[in-house]
Amino acid sequence: MKRYALTLGVLAVLAVGTLSTANAARTHIIRYGDTLWDLSIQYYSTPFNWEDIMRANPSLEGVEYLRPGEELIIPDIYGETVQLSQASEYPSGVYTTSGSSSRPMLSRLVLETTGMVTDTPPQPSGYVIDTDLEEEDPFDDIHSYPGDLLAIDIGQSDGVQQDMVFRLCKTGGPVYHPETGADLGEVIRVSGVCRVVDVDPNSSVALLEHAYLPVTYGDFLLPYDAAEPVPVATAQTVENLDAYVIAFRDPQSERAYSFDVLYIDRGSLQGLQPGDIYAMFRYGDQVLSPDSRTLQEPDVPVAEMIVLDTTDDTAAMLVFSISTSDLIRIGDRIELVREQL
């Protein structure tokens, strides 16, 4: 496929997005040490909306390119007037929960990039065949990041049309149960979301609009489905449904921190639903009291996780609270503490 330059139509779409966002947004002058994560906490009381700030500032090359003194648009994500473009297929806004502020707040992009562990991988719609098309140097186009152009191997003959949206995915290594050693399948990680901007008979050019991982040659495409809000469970569970942590979304992670996504060995067939809450406990020891009685210390919850999505036998979860320096590892056992009615 020929190298592709942005058409006037695409530039117009981006310009409309910038103007419409600016009309209903605040601005922030970047200071030394600012990060999109911290700015999201400052303006939205949650770190999850850093991607919304990045998308509202198309001139920002990446999260590492915050230059002190420059101005950022802070979009009004709670209002219906803020849209990236009239043709956008994304639902606008943030998914929140009512009630206590200690409940997790889940952004759309968190829900749409959870990935899964499965023994029945989804059928790809197509594949990435070239990355960072605007770069001529072959050593500069190994990876693609938000704002870059991709070539994909499906086109008009496959039913592809301009403005169609796809999720980009990677296949990770096999996953084995930490206790039994059983083969649970493989990790499917979402590397990004792209929108088709130009279509040829047998291939297309897509704009990478969001990336969680670097997008590379061979990443496969799945149809984009907008995430639905996740209601947070409030009912205390009476069911004993322990689970084991079997993998992390981040392939480089050895332990999970707050706001990380992990996978467990329970799914919809065991009754799990999005919004169910698990906890990891520090189990109490038997101790001798000053009056020589043997007592059992209470079990203390040290981390909480919410189910984002399920397969038949596994689930993806977000860590939304952790209060221990002994972070979550693969093989840790967790307990269901709240579930949907």
Rank of each mutant, 00 (worst) to 15 (best):
V197A: 09
D200G: 08
N202L: 10
S203H: 07
S203F: 03
S204Q: 03
V205S: 05
A206F: 00
L207G: 00
L207E: 00
A211D: 04
Y212R: 15
L213W: 03
P214Y: 03
V215Y: 08
V215Q: 10
L221M: 11
L221A: 08
P223H: 06
D225G: 08
A227C: 01
A227Y: 01
E228H: 00
P229R: 02
V230R: 12
P231A: 11
V232H: 06
A233F: 01
V238M: 15
E239C: 10
E239R: 13
D242P: 04
Y244V: 00
A247G: 07
F248I: 09
Q252R: 12
R255V: 15
S258I: 13
F259L: 04
D260G: 05
D260L: 01
V261K: 11
L262R: 00
L262A: 02
L262T: 02
L262N: 02
L262I: 04
Y263G: 00
I264K: 00
I264W: 00
R266K: 14
L269V: 04
G271C: 02
G275S: 10
I277N: 11
R282A: 14
R282L: 09
Q286I: 01
V287Q: 07
S289Q: 12
P290H: 12
D291K: 12
D291T: 13
S292F: 10
P298Y: 03
D299R: 02
V302M: 05
A303L: 10
A303T: 12
